[in-house]
Design a protein around this nucleic acid. Structure first.
Length: 423
RNA sequence: GGAGAGGUGGCCGAGUGGUUUAAGGCGCACGCCUGGAAAGUGUGAGUUCCGUGUGGAGCGGGACCGAGGGUUCGAAUCCCUCUCUCUCCGCCA
């Protein structure tokens, strides 16, 4: 959520910057400024009425103590009209406030100044690429066939007990998953992140705080009985730890890491993108989250990108870094790098990490602030990134490392898997 | 799921209708005291909104005692709903 003051002070700039996303904010910004006026006017008058009421009540109290009941009764009569006025103004105020809130929530985050306009993923900018594209034998097969061949991921069994998009990992497949989780967590801890195990279900306030609600309501699984949402990413609980808090400036940056299962309805997805492990309803991910001083958040974004780069290098996967264009960047993000690995049998780049700086967009929703040196409350910046999402990493490892003997496990992972080949 | 108790400032804890402008304590910040510290002592300290002023220095005012409603001239205090925590019972990994 953008800050009201910022919108009020430079409405044209907001409209111009949001046009980079192909978002026409002119009408909403206009309405916001109007409603805010109404709201402030009502609040101002309401405060005056309340002040007068408080004054009268105090006087009545004193009169009662002195036994002057008639004078008190006379004063009471005046409160009737004040009360009606107060009620009307109060209603007007909260109505305006609600409307204002509803308008504010519709505006996406301002893209960073370096973000280029663009319509789709086609317009994203490849800013870096590393690693050799493997040349596979002519009999090389995609990972879903390898899963079957080595009996490590069973999609049909998942279909049977749950539905499509919920695979069952078996034997060395299950151990590979566990190895990756531990590998990623150990690396993150070594890089100074604090490990958490968050709840996998969150309440509505948490969904709102990180921006999944009300926007992406239909993308989360919802437990109606208890009004709880299954998390689409550990970002939601881990960032919301700090909702409604004022953190100490000296505690910044906060660096947290969490492994969690993630649940996504993926409503509207179809086609070959969803084949095998490419797109699932439930998957595992290690997520890094940072809370940082506004003046240092972009350094931190680069640091996180560099951190993920090292992970991909350790796994010996060819990868590239994509800077998302205005049309492809998420509603909440100011700048996002997607990290993509090359999956050689599919001959596709697969997104395995998305690293974003949300600036104050989430912290404004969450009322997450810090005290600066002058004792002023200021919104922090929040950032997060996958480090990493497992299924597509597994897909690329299987495809790229397939040999006639079996699937070769990268060296860095062997201490975790306890085997060096899947055969 | 059943029964009971309770949510008060950073923390502990008083407060059952009117100078509560939330007692007191601990902790905190800044002074005094001290060679330095402890003890002692003094002062101060929350969040947020509106107005005025103007980059939030200041001043005036509103709201905030789990959340939301209600009663009343007036609510931390009374009533209703919700929520969370604790204890006991039941169930259970």
């Amino acid at each position: 959520m953008l800050e009201l003051n910022v919108i009020k002070e430079n409405p044209e700039i907001i409209i111009e910057r949001l046009s980079v996303r192909n978002f026409d904010a002119a009408t909403i910004v206009d309405q916001i400024i109007q409603i805010d006026k109404t709201r402030r006017d009502a609040k101002s008058r309401l405060d005056q009425v309340n002040a007068e009421m408080n004054q009268i009540s105090k006087e009545i109290g004193i009169l009662f103590q002195n036994g002057k009941k008639e004078e008190a009764a006379a004063l009471k009569e005046r409160t009737g009209t004040l009360k009606t006025m107060g009620k009307e103004l109060g209603d007007k105020f909260s109505e305006a406030e609600n409307e204002l809130q509803q308008l504010l929530v519709q505006l996406p985050n301002l893209p960073h100044a370096s973000i280029k306009p663009g319509k789709t993923a086609e317009d994203n900018e490849i800013v870096y690429q590393e690693g050799e594209i493997p040349v596979l034998h002519s009999d090389a097969v995609p990972h879903w066939d390898l899963c079957k061949k080595y009996d490590i991921v069973d999609f049909e069994l998942g279909n049977k007990i749950t539905g499509s998009g919920f695979p069952v990992y078996r034997g060395k497949g299950a151990r590979l998953q566990r190895a990756l989780i531990n590998f990623f967590l150990d690396r993150a801890i070594a890089a100074g992140y604090l490990e958490y195990q968050p709840p996998l279900l969150v309440n509505e306030a948490s969904g709102f705080g990180t921006g999944q609600l009300p926007d992406k309501d239909g993308q989360m699984y919802f437990v109606n009985e208890d009004k709880l949402y299954l998390i689409p990413t550990a970002e939601v609980p881990v960032t919301n730890f700090y909702r409604d808090m004022i953190v100490k400036e000296g505690d910044l940056p906060v660096k947290n890491v969490a492994y969690s299962s993630c649940f996504r309805r993926e409503a509207g997805s179809y086609g070959k993108d969803v084949r095998g492990l490419n797109r699932l309803h439930q998957f595992d991910k290690v997520e890094i989250v940072q809370i940082q001083h506004p003046e240092r958040s972009y350094e931190t974004l680069e640091e996180m990108r560099n951190y993920v780069t090292i992970l991909l290098q350790a796994l010996e996967l060819p990868f590239r870094v994509v800077k998302l264009c205005g049309g492809d960047i998420s509603f909440t993000s100011a700048l996002t790098y997607d990290m993509e690995v090359y999956s050689a049998a599919q001959q596709r780049w697969l997104e395995v990490s998305s690293i974003s700086n949300f600036e104050s967009f989430q912290s404004n929703r969450m009322k997450l602030r810090f005290k600066d040196e002058q004792g002023r409350s200021r919104l922090v910046h929040t950032l997060n990134g996958s480090a990493l999402a497992l299924p597509r990493i597994v897909a690329a490892l299987l495809e790229n490392n397939q040999t006639s003997e079996g699937i070769v496990i990268p060296k860095a992972l062997r201490p975790y898997t306890g085997f060096d080949i899947i055969d």
